[in-house]
Design a protein around this nucleic acid. Structure first.
Lengths: 168, 168
DNA sequence: ATCCCTGCAAAGGGTTTGCAGACGC
DNA sequence: GCGTCTGCAAACCCTTTGCAGGGAT
């Protein structure tokens, strides 16, 4: 899927404001990386992002990709996940609802879902333990025994609703 | 806290059976590592386990520690977590209820809690996505702003109940 | 002109691997 | 005795770091 220009203008604006607030420079590399991320729809790791840009003959270094991803995570335009593999996975975050992931151990496919009850758990556990809970990471581990589930299923571009969203 | 002998006999039995079933050898190192793990109560990483054993003048290599931990995870005597740091964290699993973790980003303390609603989410999400869900990992990220929460709080040796356990 | 940011490559840290010798079976 | 397991160290992989040159301000 191609880059959504409206969305990109918005996130570019957000990034510009963030850079300005932090007195960081507006380098072409930073915006090129942002653009590359927002023209993707899947989860990706640093290497695949780096390779995509190389393939488009855009000269970037891995170090800059890492650096820029940190900035984008910091300003909530990108979210970072550790799905248990060694390398971190990233995805664009703007315009996407908070969601969680189910990963099939057999075929490695990643599904997304939303469930408002997680928010309740988060709130209640925080109260019981006397902690302010600022976020969570929920990963369900699935099994499709290759072929009879994941393979036939279209990739979820939007998180599936598990139950009607009650509150946000 | 010292090793609970009854528990250790049980887990040793389980491990023996597992080794036999898989036609693996009963080496002294494997049982020494199991014993060291069950005489601990905290979460630990490979290095600290290795160091403890070295300090007790038990000769083991890191390679064997890694190898044995894999086996113990495989037979459910140990659980492995990726709390986002670089190294994996482990904890003994036998006799402990399934529980999840809250990690304070400020002081790194780890709390444990149980919430049966996670089980319901797991089940329902699996149904909606057509996946058999075999497990989950939920991590809540807390913030205590150092000193006013975690510091004063005793470590949770048993998972706190967030609500009465309805079902298991 | 300043000095932050980039690219490159080397270093770093946790985990895995290869190999020779040890030992459970 | 056979074949797996161990210990050691090197290799590995992802990420971070150091440094010199380049470009944003």
């Amino acid at each position: 899927m191609a880059l959504n220009l409206d969305t990109f203008e918005t996130v570019k604006r957000i990034f510009l404001d963030y850079l300005e607030a932090k007195a960081l420079r507006r380098t072409p590399e930073r915006f090129a990386i942002l653009e590359e991320i927002y023209s993707r729809n899947d989860h990706f790791d640093v290497e695949s992002l780096y390779i995509s840009m190389k393939n488009k003959n855009y000269r970037v270094s891995r170090a800059t990709v890492y650096n820029t991803l940190d900035l984008l995570v910091e300003c909530d335009l990108v979210s970072k996940h550790q799905f248990g593999q060694s390398q971190a996975q990233y995805e664009k975050a703007y315009g996407y609802r908070q969601h969680d992931h189910l990963i099939c151990s057999d075929c490695q496919k990643v599904f997304e879902f939303c469930d408002p009850r997680i928010y309740n758990i988060q709130k209640m556990v925080g109260e019981v333990l006397g902690q302010r809970v600022v976020g969570h990471s929920l990963i369900l581990h699935g099994a499709c025994t290759k072929g009879d589930g994941c393979e036939n299923r279209p990739a979820q571009s939007q998180p599936a609703d598990v139950m009607p969203t009650l509150a946000e």
